[in-house]
Design a protein around this nucleic acid. Sequence first.
RNA 1: UCAGACGGCCGGGCGGUCGCGGCCCUUCGGGGUCGAGGAAAGUCCGGGCUCCACGACGACAUGGCGGUGGGUAACGCCCACCGGGGGUGACCCCAGGGAUAGCGCCACAGAGAGCAGACCGCCCUUUUCCGCAAAGGCUUCGCAGGGCUCGCCCUCCGAAGCAGAGCGAAGGAGGGUAAGGGUGAAAGGGUGGGGUAAGAGCCCACCGGGCCGCUGGCGACAGGGGCCGCAUGGCAAGCCCCGCCAGGAGCAAGACCGAAUAGGGAUCCCGCGCGCUCGCAAGAGGGCAGGGCCGUCGCCGGCCCAGGGGUCCGGGUAGGUCGCGAGAACCGGCCGGCAACGGCCGGUCCAGAGGAAUGACCGCCGCGUCUCCGCAAGGAGGCGGCACAGAACCCGGCUUACAGGCCGUCUGAUCUC
Length: 121
Amino acid sequence: MDTPPITRLTKRSEFLACAQAPSCAKGAVVVQARARGDDDPAVRVGFTATKRIGGAVQRNRAKRRMREAARRVLPDHARPGHDYVLIARGGVITRPWDRLLDDVKTALVRLAADRPAPQIR
RNA sequence: UCAGACGGCCGGGCGGUCGCGGCCCUUCGGGGUCGAGGAAAGUCCGGGCUCCACGACGACAUGGCGGUGGGUAACGCCCACCGGGGGUGACCCCAGGGAUAGCGCCACAGAGAGCAGACCGCCCUUUUCCGCAAAGGCUUCGCAGGGCUCGCCCUCCGAAGCAGAGCGAAGGAGGGUAAGGGUGAAAGGGUGGGGUAAGAGCCCACCGGGCCGCUGGCGACAGGGGCCGCAUGGCAAGCCCCGCCAGGAGCAAGACCGAAUAGGGAUCCCGCGCGCUCGCAAGAGGGCAGGGCCGUCGCCGGCCCAGGGGUCCGGGUAGGUCGCGAGAACCGGCCGGCAACGGCCGGUCCAGAGGAAUGACCGCCGCGUCUCCGCAAGGAGGCGGCACAGAACCCGGCUUACAGGCCGUCUGAUCUC
């Protein structure tokens, strides 16, 4: 099976929809996962870093690290037809890179185990 | 060499493997190219741009600015100069218009603080008391001489005492004095001399100040002259006065396109008939007839409808496109100007934007720091050490933040010659 395309979330409404979805906090990130319920197998992902992280420089750096982590982890651990939102927590900038990857991976696995995705052809 | 003043600049570099955003090309595999800052920050001023308002004007209110002359699109910015203050100096600092337009304030301290003021001190007059006391005087006594009416008188000298002009000290009363002490942010020009009872611009010299000409300068001002002895302070970041500048909102400005759904309007087609019950009414219920759908075309049965359907127009939401980067641009040269800056010539194209592009891992080098080895030069290793910080419509400024480092000019010391 081909890996579904991964695109970015860009609309505020899409982020808000994911905010209602199940989430899992692990290490330096919080991951929200939402089954869109349409027939598109695409995986979409968005990133959030609030002002609690710091100024613009810190927030940008947090999003870049999360984006790179998602790029490494999502193709193997994301479920098709889902939207994911990664929210930065306090230590996301100083977290060692391997640990950050583990955080995202285990959060994704746990979300997939908690609620199996509806069957998608 | 050491201290310091001012101005300017950099703010990690090279490489590898995966990646990211815009644009272009593409044989759709990919390729090419560009891709954060000096502050992108704070959003404090000034503009461009856009919409709204508007008589293109004036007045008032409010806010801002405030030495002069330049620069600029403009500014509260920049440059040069002037004045004042600080520093040995290079240089630095100044909210730097008006205090005889008016109002107000000047706390505390202090005797007195805005038509000044007598606490201490100084001086004069007077008075009380005390001390000292010249020349001379008076009283008493002694001694000597002389006279005579024999008891006194006169003279010289000595002793004691008294009064005493005057001097000194203390106190009281009246007055003079702003030089001194003390208070204060500030005490009604300063310093020196004369003068005086003591003092005082009372007088004089210099400095300061005011007024009026002159000279230089575009000007702020400066220089010098004459006159005036000259009480009349500070605060205008208290109100105020004067001059100058400001219509308001901001790219979520604003322009265009515009789905689904639900409203609105126009028009066309079909239907919109009868009676009953409940209800004040709006309306609700069900019957016959009508229309639609389904089962089998119809009869018949079920369900649904009091309206249904089509076309067009308009507002408008999500969303999309534009606004949006070739400009008060940058680089180099020449010219003008002390400079800010301006002009000309040549060259370059240089991010774009949306939930927002620069990251992850690694190697080498640089810098910093720590540990160890070494007499030293140096070497080895560790670091989760390498600033402040991320364009969001765009410019010109200001302000604030910033590890470390570089360059230039100048000043004061010191050393060598």
